[in-house]
Design a protein around this nucleic acid. Structure first.
Lengths: 152, 152
DNA sequence: CTGATATCTTACGTTAACGTCAACTATCAA
DNA sequence: TTGATAGTTGACGTTAACGTAAGATATCAG
């Protein structure tokens, strides 16, 4: 599920519990292409996961819950990332420093994109909070008038 | 739909367009008790709305979209608010300054509750953004090592 | 090897939040 | 008064995101 996965020792139930979802959800996400199923698995064999898989799933769940992205939109993000990964594989040179640099740079862009999404949502939330604060100020002023001052 | 509504001149289609939803959504929300249908309307007559109704609908949509609240949760909020409104009606005294003060104080609490929800979400989003920024810093440091310095 | 337990696959079920359609009807400009 | 237009009620349809159940199988402790 992840090319750079290390241990690959966790089973689906443990992953589900740690992330706070059900095994069904994990299988469903795999079916949608969100978790890029590991290739060396025969039909019927148990799925095995590593820490990087757990991190990835957590990331997806947060994008879903905090930004309200649909699974379809998540698939879009993941596919875009994989498309870039494919491009880098064709620029596959040697596994030299140059290639590693390229990988790191792609990761940077990926994280920057997510950060941009999060910040956009932060802005709209700040706007919402600002309006509520305005409302609150007006109400408190009104309360002050009614309590201490005169003027109904 | 709102006791303090003024004009009550807009029809459902105009409201829908202005808020960015469909008429069906408005009827559905009314059916769920989110818009407290106006009592003076016979079966088959057109619904009429005022600016306060538009504002209320906008508020609901934002709570739905920005905080991801379900309609059931929104019903909970609205019912809680109406329960307090009912209490104030029993403390119905005269429509004096004292009563108006009470109403303003309830509105303040209502807005404070919403603001609390928004701020909670802002905190979790800030946490998320912070983690992404950390990740980004680590990646950039790594990029710097690979580009300028040595050490693979 | 042998249960006990967790997983696997397949397939149908469920729920929220509307969409859509049909047959009427209210509103309003001309 | 008369259409044109938009709205009304009622009912069934749809979609995303899983839930659930059944029968078979893989894993692993003992």
């Amino acid at each position: 599920m992840n090319a750079t996965a290390g241990e690959r020792t966790l089973r689906i139930g443990e992953v589900a519990e740690r992330v706070g979802v059900t095994p069904r959800t994990i299988r469903y996400y795999e079916e949608l292409g969100l978790l890029g199923s590991a290739p060396g698995r025969a039909k019927g064999e148990h799925r095995l996961y590593g820490e990087t898989d757990v991190a990835r799933l957590r990331e997806l769940i947060r994008l879903r819950d905090l930004l309200g992205l649909s699974l379809e939109e998540l698939v879009g993000l993941v596919e875009a990332e994989e498309a870039r990964a494919a491009l880098r594989d064709r620029w596959h040179d040697s596994r030299s420093d140059a290639e590693r640099l390229r990988i790191v740079e792609e990761a940077i862009e990926h994280v920057e994109r997510q950060l941009e999404l999060v910040r956009a949502r932060q802005r709209t939330l700040a706007e919402f909070a600002g309006e509520l604060e305005d409302k609150l100020r007006r109400l408190r002023r009104r309360r002050h008038e009614l309590a201490g001052g005169k003027r109904g």
